[in-house]
Amino acid sequence: MVLKLKIWRQEQGQKDGRFESYVLEELSSDMSFLEMLDQLNENLVKKKKVPVAFDHDCREGICGSCSLVINGNPHGPHTGSAVCQLHLRSFKDREEVWVEPFRAKAFPVIQDLIVDRSSLDRIIQSGGYISVNTGSAPEAHSIPVEKGKAEEAFSNAACIGCGACVAVCKNASASLFVSAKLSHLNLLPQGQAEKKSRALRMVGQMEKEGFGACTNTGACSRACPKEISLRSIARMNREYLKAYLSSD
């Protein structure tokens, strides 16, 4: 099959970029989208041109590295999956495909399709941790966890921190990411020690990084490769108010 690509090219250190057109022929519909980009890069290298920079690592949907917006959709047209799990059979022959980086003020473009998502790391550093005693690891079964809470915490722990929620949100809000991380730890007994300070700090850091506010459109949850529920955001709002009212 043939694809007509429009790819965002932005040199490192430059503030602006532009779309460049590439036509790839003789593609297999069984190729993954990232393999197609690999092929494009091989062609570019052969022509002594600069290959397209894009983030990728595990290529099985669990690392959260890939970060492409394809025809306006973060991670492409499918739901519940990352762009590394997208295959060319999802496109029509001779289709025009626009590839852009995740766009947000808090995600500055480093080069081409690679964005700097360390704002998410700083949010984690601010409160996404638990206190544990040093020494030998405790017996896992010694802390009982209620079944429902364990399930809910696990659903939130599934967040791979890719930032698709920010990318798709009309306000570039990181609410779904922050609420998933907060829910994961605040629901479990191990996370109780820092429960309040976590809510205050993570929300405070989110605000500092320049993400937008939540309008409750739900686009984040629909674009999330792990399908994190919007309910987590309501929990974050609740936990933040509770922590604010009862903090010293």
């Binding site: 779309f19 306006g72 852009e100 766009r103 003020k105 808090a106 809000s173 937008g212």
Partner: peptide, 11 residues
């Protein structure tokens, strides 16, 4: 919070 707009809208 979004300095550069997308060329294509999510569908």
């Amino acid at each position: 919070s979004r300095s550069e707009k997308y060329a294509r809208q999510a569908s």
